[in-house]
């Protein structure tokens, strides 16, 4: 298991390097120059050049990349050009909000998604299955922006149970978690349902039935357990999606987080912040995938064998 972990970790190194190149190039190829946001309209080319030199933007791209990556590996993500603060400070200020929102949304998606999917699979073809799947279909197609506003209207404005927006209290997390989590519930429930129905057709399940094991025990102990493998894969892939995909939710709920930091910085072409935030999101995706692989390996020896 340790060697499996180390091998997977080593595989992340080239992935990390490739991702860092892509992030750096995308940010620099997008039209827009932060220096134009900083200098006076009438500034001479010399003044612009001096400012570009101050932020290292006068060097060839490959040199800028090497300097940025070298510093990033030591934890120095540079200083924000427009926001005028160390990027690491900005990220440290925002990442706890993203992590708490993401972790709770993931937990909600997992618990409710698996429970709903299992119910739908167990009662396949019944009204429970049809109702659940219809609700799931609705949940997965409603844009998070709109869903967020709907939840605010219902739970904050009409019922007054939760704050409309902000991050001042724990209950301000509930509606954003529901907004992000409901999309995940739909996905996890669909995967769980299909996986359970496929598992239910396997020979060992037939044998369990033949042995007279109670149906609920077969479904929950055996079928669900085997069906969780693809669910774990989906969940690990969703970690990055949840962190990055929280952008609109953070916007609607006026919450701090990596997503809102990314949008603010992107609009101002604040390269160091955009690069830093994207790098953090990429690392989150990679770590999420790694975590998923480890859990899968722990659950299924075939996965451990497969990498040898």
């Amino acid at each position: 298991m340790v060697s499996f972990f180390l091998k997977r970790l080593l595989l992340l190194i080239p992935v990390f390097l490739a991702v860092s190149v892509v992030i750096f190039m995308i940010v620099h190829l997008v039209p827009g120059d932060p220096i134009d946001n900083l200098v006076q309209i009438n500034s001479s080319p010399e003044q612009k050049a001096a400012l570009a030199a101050k932020y290292g933007l006068d060097k060839p791209l490959y040199q800028q990349y090497a300097i940025w990556l070298g510093n990033a590996l030591t934890g120095d993500l540079g200083d924000a050009i427009i926001l005028r603060r160390p990027v690491a400070d900005l990220i440290a200020q925002n990442i706890p909000h993203s992590l708490s929102l993401g972790a709770l949304a993931l937990l909600f998606s997992t618990v409710v998604g698996i429970a709903t999917g299992a119910l739908a699979a167990i009662y396949k073809g019944s009204w429970i299955d049809r109702t659940t799947m219809t609700l799931i279909l609705l949940g997965s197609t409603v844009p998070s922006f709109w869903l967020g506003l709907l939840l605010i209207m219902l739970f904050a404005v009409q019922l007054g149970w939760f704050p409309v927006s902000g991050a001042r209290s724990w209950d301000a997390l509930i509606l954003p978690v529901l907004t992000i989590g409901l999309g995940g519930v739909a996905l996890v429930a669909r995967v769980t349902r299909v996986a359970m129905m496929e598992t239910a057709r396997k020979d060992f399940v037939m044998m369990l039935h033949a042995k007279g094991v109670p149906p609920w025990q077969i479904e929950l102990r055996h079928v669900l357990r085997h069906a969780l493998l693809p669910v774990v894969t989906i969940l690990s892939l969703r970690i990055g999606w949840i962190l990055g995909g929280a952008v609109t939710v953070e916007f609607v709920f006026a919450r701090p987080g990596l997503g809102s930091l990314l949008i603010t910085s992107l609009n101002q072409r604040d390269y160091p912040v955009v690069q830093g935030a994207l790098l953090m999101l990429a690392i989150a995706v990679m770590l999420g995938t790694l975590l998923g692989d480890i859990i899968q390996a722990a659950m299924d020896p075939r996965v451990r064998e497969g990498i040898k």
Binding site: L149, I152, M153, A156, V157, V164, S165, G166, F251, V252, F253, A254, S260
Partner: peptide, 11 residues
């Protein structure tokens, strides 16, 4: 407070 979305500020 800084609320980017006008609908949220209104609510």
């Amino acid at each position: 407070r800084e609320i980017p979305e006008d609908s949220t500020a209104f609510l």
